[in-house]
């Protein structure tokens, strides 16, 4: 039997050790498991304040079997820049310096340091697991919370913002590699991290990771909710490389059918499982649909740009 990606995942071993302290059904740790399989042991995770600063467990033990540096909320990409430059100055190559943080740490408070590191094209990965709010502090809205979602600071689901399109923003920096991923598609995630590993310079990967307690759905539904995000067109899977003044953008296989809006499931399918949308208004649903259309319109522009000779 030829070796498949599944064999590769099994052979990679586990760097996320059982007995960590993430909530049952946590999407973020599923993603981290596969990210670490792709990265391997020569990895330094730089972790800003986030759920992952807590689910790695308590001193003097830790549940992740790679090097970890816990850092202040807004500082992760800058700390990683320092580590990467120091290793290069010392002549060490092939060490993956990886920021692993949530949407709060990388899309809100730490966005300036992420953008600065991207603009300088630091040889680091910034991997954001997006659970669409400040989950570790108790579900407060972030710049990545979708319109209409109830959080403890939008208790009845008031529309505040529009969910910051961070991956597109990173792509506009002209960095070598940007991708989105989703925890329902772990092999796609694994291959994207492996691809990023082969590229020197700044890499950004934005992973959709549902949060059962924060989004108020049953622990067992994490994968179903994540998959529906793709099937409704809410979350678009793509990867892009910037080479010689051009962006090479492609939709990833699971998202390709949904370029055609008629193939997408209605957004209600995605919303219905989640308590955070249980009292969503028609106005918010309209706003969400508008947001989805807007995301796809950007993707189409990048596809067109990539198709031009």
């Amino acid at each position: 039997m030829p070796k498949t990606i599944l064999d590769e995942l099994i052979e990679a071993g586990e760097y996320l050790l059982p007995g960590h302290t993430a909530c049952p059904g946590c999407g973020s740790v599923i993603a981290l498991r596969h990210v670490l399989k792709a990265l391997g042991k020569d990895t330094i995770l730089v972790i800003p304040a986030s759920c992952s600063s807590v689910y790695q467990a308590i001193y003097p033990k830790v549940s992740i079997n790679v090097m970890i540096y816990n850092v202040a909320f807004a500082s992760a990409a800058a700390v990683a820049s320092g580590i990467s430059q120091a290793l290069e100055r010392k002549g060490f190559e092939d060490v993956n310096v990886v920021v692993w943080g949530g949407d709060g740490g990388l899309i809100d408070i730490g966005a300036a340091s992420v953008s600065g590191a991207a603009e300088r094209n630091e040889n680091i990965f910034v991997i954001c697991y997006d659970n669409e709010a400040y989950m570790n502090t108790g579900i407060q809205r972030s710049g990545s919370t979708p319109p209409g979602a109830r959080t403890t600071t939008t208790p009845i689901g008031k529309i505040v913002g529009f969910k910051k399109p961070m991956a597109y923003i990173m792509l506009m920096h002209g960095v070598p590699y940007v991708a989105t991923a989703n925890v329902a598609y772990p092999t796609d995630l694994y291959e994207k991290v492996k691809k990023a590993k082969s590229i020197k310079g700044f890499k950004f990967i934005h992973i959709f990771t549902p949060c059962p307690p924060g989004w108020r759905f049953d622990d067992s539904k994490t994968i179903e909710v994540a998959r529906l995000a793709v099937e409704t067109g809410y979350w678009i899977l793509w990867q892009a490389e910037y080479r010689h003044g051009r962006i090479h953008f492609e939709l990833s296989p699971p998202s390709r059918p949904y370029l055609d809006a008629s193939k997408r499931k209605p957004i209600e399918e995605f919303l219905k499982f989640q308590g955070r949308f249980s009292k969503i208004t028609e106005e918010s649903v309209k706003k969400l649909r508008e947001w989805i259309e807007y995301q796809w319109s950007i993707a189409k522009r990048f596809l067109d740009m990539s198709a031009q000779k």
Binding site: T4, G19, P24, R33
Partner: peptide
């Protein structure tokens, strides 16, 4: 095995039936 958030389902090759490690399985039922 692939979707277990707790790395609490164990396999060493594709020829095996996966085993649940009940010491650590949190019972999320994914």
């Amino acid at each position: 095995w692939m979707y277990c958030p707790d790395a609490a389902i164990e396999v060493s090759s594709r020829q095996e039936v996966p085993r649940v490690n009940y010491d650590y399985c949190k019972g999320c039922l994914i």
